[in-house]
């Protein structure tokens, strides 16, 4: 498991059955999104699951980071699935009209099975 800490956000990642599971903890804003971007890039070309259970807040810089990763995965042979979105985090996806663009799962198990 790799752990990175910068400012209020920490991000850990692990590989489970050839799937890269990324687990951010804290708010994903302009100060934290570079750290998430860094971890997402490491998983390029593989299936990535981002478990957002520990993320109470996300702004448009977080959305932009995830859009970037999704587009990179579509260009390659990868896949990006997001799971465990809180109501507040889901609302920003809705405001940005991105709810149907991402693969969303209710739980980590569901995301692994997608």
């Amino acid at each position: 498991m790799a752990d990175n800490v910068l400012g209020p956000l920490s991000v850990s990642s692990r590989i489970v059955n050839d799937v890269v599971v990324i687990t951010p903890s804290g708010d994903i804003d302009l100060s934290g999104s570079p750290l998430l971007r860094q971890e997402l890039k490491k998983g390029q070309g593989k299936k990535i699951v981002v478990d957002l259970a520990g993320v109470p807040y996300m702004d448009s810089s977080g959305l932009a980071t995830l859009v970037e990763a999704m587009q990179a995965s579509r260009r390659g042979s990868g896949q990006l699935v997001l799971c465990n979105l809180s109501e507040r985090v889901r609302s920003i996806f809705a405001i940005a009209k991105l709810e149907t663009v991402f693969k969303l799962a209710a739980t980590l198990d569901d995301a692994m099975a997608k």
Binding site: S60, L63, A64, V67, E68, A96, K97, L98
Partner: peptide, 18 residues
């Protein structure tokens, strides 16, 4: 235009929306 899916440029939309 939100139909164009790309990173960035969402801040003004979010502000005016909420």
């Amino acid at each position: 235009d939100l139909d164009e899916i790309r990173p960035g440029g969402l801040g003004v939309h979010i502000i005016t929306e909420v």
